[in-house]
Each structure stands twice: as structure tokens, then as C-alpha cells.
Design a protein around this nucleic acid. Structure first.
Length: 288
DNA sequence: CAGGCGTGGCT
DNA sequence: TAGCCAAGCCT
């Protein structure tokens, strides 16, 4: 049995029932879910997705909303620029594609917030196009199973070609295989503590064959501390504006931020991102 | 293209 | 507990 077939039958038995999948899945819900799922766990997305689709069932509905409403609805889902990107993408879909999510890679890539992964995911999951969908899960599964290592520097084209070989000829079945690999990576072949005793493709796994080697110690401990970071400052400022309906006085003092210089940088970057709009000196609001 | 971008759960 | 990790994207 090929790894794709094995993962597919595992998926049939263990797939989570998620609202953006299955018979009810149409392009717009798929697109909304993919935006929300960027760097964000499924469990955290679920309630936001449900509420969001209830509030804005179509691209036209979302396009008609104000950025302020959109940012408030995004709440603490994280990376709030995604909310603006989705809003802008909805407007483009209405203006340029008659309100329908385009089934075309180049058109999708031109939408704000849509990169290679998201474009591929929409094509595969919403339209049944046979195209590899390569996210962090798929990449990790492939690295381990075929290359026998937990980390690798592989050219995107090589990766793409290799994973295309996993896909059956039929586009809808190929999409199911991609979903299966992603689900498998999310639930079994996880980054930190993989559940190899439950693995349906262990027999042919090169990583297992080699004794589960871990990547060499990183050259740099790149991760920065969140506490006291610019990101935390941005988050603090936006949190204040989300819960105030009108224009609000924003100073380092009013948002309880220690470093005034850092506070100013955070305000400037938020404004630069279009997440906040200045009303007058020290007074800001979410954009109309 | 390396770095910046939220938030919260888990080990 | 402090760091790792989570369906990436943009500049």
C-alpha cells in the first residue's frame, strides 16, 4: 500500500469533523478557514470561524463591513493583519470576480494575504484541483517518511515534485490525500512528541528506520522573548481600541506601557499597517 | 530574504 | 518555567 493510500484510510477513520470540510464546504468558507488557520491551531479557530460565517456568509457581506468591525470580530485570534487582508481580498473578489472566489492560481495569489500555501489549499479543497498543498505538517511528514530526517533544506521545486507523486490522478481524491497528510501531521506525526506507535505508515518510514534522528542543534536560538516586545505593545494597543467603540486617547500611560519610545514605534507600525487611524494628537480609532 | 508579525496552550 | 509550537504571509 502506498503511503497516500495508507494515510487516506487512516484519515477516513480519524478525520476530525470540521465545519469547513465535507459536503458543506464551498470556496468562501474554505478561504476564510485558511486565513484563520495560518499559524493558528484548529481548536482556537473553530469558534471564530462559526461566528464569522454567521456574520458574513459571502464575500460581498464581508466587503460591505468596515475594517473596524472586521478587526473587532477577529478579536484575539492573532496576527490581526490577516483580518484586513481577508477584508481586502473579499472586496477584490466582489469587484473583479463577481463575488465568487476565483478557481485560478494566479488570481488567488494576487489576493491580499494569499501565498502559495493558501492558493493551493483553496484550489484543492474548494475546487478539487490536483495540486500539492504543502504546509508545515506536510513538509514535516515528507521529510521524516522519505528523507529520514526531522529537518531539511529542500528546494521548493523538489519538494513540490516529490509530493505531487503522492497524489492520485483524480483531483478530488488528491485533495483528500492532502487533507489526510495534514491531519496526520497535526494529530500523529507532530513536531514535538510524535505518536509513532499509532502511525499507519511506520513500516516504510525512513525516519523510523534511522532511529528518529532529531535535527542538529540550531545555530541560533532565534526565538525572541514576547514579554516586553514590540509585538506585545501592538497587541496591548489594539486590545484597548477593540473594546472602545469610539476614538480613544492612546499614550504609553493610558495603555500602561513602560517604554514610551517603544510605544510610539508600536503606534506607528499599527498605523502603517492600516490597523489604526489617527483622529488627532494622541487620539486613535480603528479604521472606518 | 531574514525578520517581523499575536496569542495561548503545552511540556 | 521558559521556550516551543500552531493549516503563512509580507516586506
Amino acid at each position: 500500500m502506498s503511503p497516500a493510500d495508507a494515510l487516506l484510510s487512516w484519515f477516513c477513520a480519524h478525520a476530525r469533523d470540521l465545519p469547513w470540510r465535507g459536503a458543506g464546504a464551498s470556496p468562501w468558507p474554505v478561504m476564510v478557514s485558511e486565513f484563520m488557520l495560518q499559524q493558528t491551531p484548529v481548536a482556537r479557530v473553530l469558534p471564530y470561524f462559526t461566528q464569522w460565517m454567521r456574520q458574513w456568509p459571502t464575500p460581498a457581506d464581508l466587503a460591505a463591513a468596515s475594517p473596524a468591525d472586521v478587526v473587532r470580530a477577529w478579536d484575539t485570534l492573532g496576527y490581526p493583519r490577516r483580518a484586513l487582508w481577508l477584508h481586502e481580498a473579499a472586496a477584490t473578489i466582489v469587484d473583479a470576480y463577481g463575488g465568487e472566489v476565483p478557481a485560478d492560481y494566479s488570481a488567488l495569489r494576487r489576493l491580499s494575504g494569499v501565498g502559495d500555501y493558501t492558493a493551493s489549499a483553496i484550489l484543492a479543497f474548494a475546487f478539487g484541483v490536483r495540486i500539492p498543498v504543502i504546509d508545515t505538517n506536510v513538509r514535516r511528514v515528507w521529510w521524516r517518511w522519505e528523507l529520514g530526517q526531522d529537518d531539511a533544506a529542500v528546494q521548493p521545486r523538489v519538494e513540490h515534485a516529490a509530493l505531487e507523486r503522492w497524489l492520485p490522478a483524480d483531483g478530488h481524491r488528491a485533495a483528500q490525500v492532502s487533507l489526510a497528510i495534514m491531519e496526520f501531521g497535526a494529530l500523529i506525526c507532530t513536531a514535538r512528541t510524535p505518536l509513532c506507535t499509532q502511525c499507519p505508515i511506520a513500516e516504510t518510514c525512513q525516519w523510523r528506520e534511522r532511529g528518529y534522528p532529531r535535527p542538529a542543534t540550531r545555530v541560533r536560538p532565534i526565538s525572541k522573548r514576547y514579554e516586553g516586545s514590540d509585538r506585545q505593545a501592538r497587541g496591548r494597543i489594539l486590545a484597548v481600541l477593540r473594546r472602545t467603540a469610539d476614538a480613544t486617547e492612546l499614550t504609553a500611560q493610558t495603555v500602561n506601557w513602560q517604554d514610551p519610545g517603544q510605544f510610539e514605534r508600536a503606534v506607528s507600525s499599527l498605523a502603517n499597517d492600516g490597523l489604526i487611524t489617527q483622529v488627532r494628537e494622541n487620539v486613535w480609532k480603528l479604521p472606518d
